[in-house]
């Protein structure tokens, strides 16, 4: 198995284990479920972005079919309703969460970043299967949207 595949599987298993750990903590089942769901969602973004980014950085060979599929997944993920994930009380004051509490008072910024991600992912999905240059040209805005959200609403690791 390739190291990258091991990395992806490890990340997903870790996310699932983190979710299970919440069940044993002191947070309510609603908060624990919301945190597990949103981190799984982020894990799926990451899984597909790893394929696209690996090709864009030429760490793995470009494959049009795989690129198109991963980009379509990203675009679909960005359109899913996340309304139930972002529950007040699920911020970084809870163990296992790195969410800044400001997200609950700055909905406008969060919504704008979500819209940017949806638009950038849709644009990427249109061209990712064309060729490597098209993929490389369209992945930047996706990364920027991810980074904007992490800058505004994610705390550094402990």
């Amino acid at each position: 198995m390739k190291p990258k595949s091991i990395l992806k599987i490890t990340a997903l298993v870790s996310a699932a284990m983190t979710g299970a750990a919440y069940a044993d903590s002191h947070v309510s089942p609603e908060i624990a479920g919301a945190m597990a769901a949103r981190q799984a969602h982020m894990g799926l973004y990451n899984f597909n972005l790893a394929t696209l980014g690996g090709m864009a950085q030429e760490k793995i060979p470009y494959n049009a079919e795989q690129a198109a599929a991963a980009a379509a997944n990203l675009a679909a993920l960005s359109m899913l309703s996340q309304q139930g994930y972002w529950l007040p009380g699920s911020d970084s004051s809870v163990e296992g969460s790195r969410l800044k509490v400001e997200v609950f008072s700055d909905f406008e910024t969060a919504a704008k970043i979500g819209q940017d991600l949806a638009l950038a992912s849709a644009a990427l999905a249109e061209v990712a299967g064309t060729d490597l240059a098209s993929l490389q040209g369209a992945i930047g805005p996706v990364g920027k949207a991810c980074g904007d959200c992490h800058e505004a609403f994610r705390t550094p690791r402990n």
């Binding site: 990395l7 990340a11 990451n46 972005l49 790893a50 980014g53 690996g54 950085q57 930047g140 990364g143 920027k144 991810c146 980074g147 904007d148 992490h150 800058e151 994610r154 705390t155 550094p156």
Partner: peptide
């Protein structure tokens, strides 16, 4: 070097918090 250019970590997370400004 790639992280300082694109903000992507080797496992394709992105820079966050104050480091996003640095990138």
């Amino acid at each position: 070097a790639e992280y300082l250019k694109s903000g992507f970590t080797p496992d394709f997370d992105t820079a966050g918090a104050e480091m996003a400004e640095v990138v």
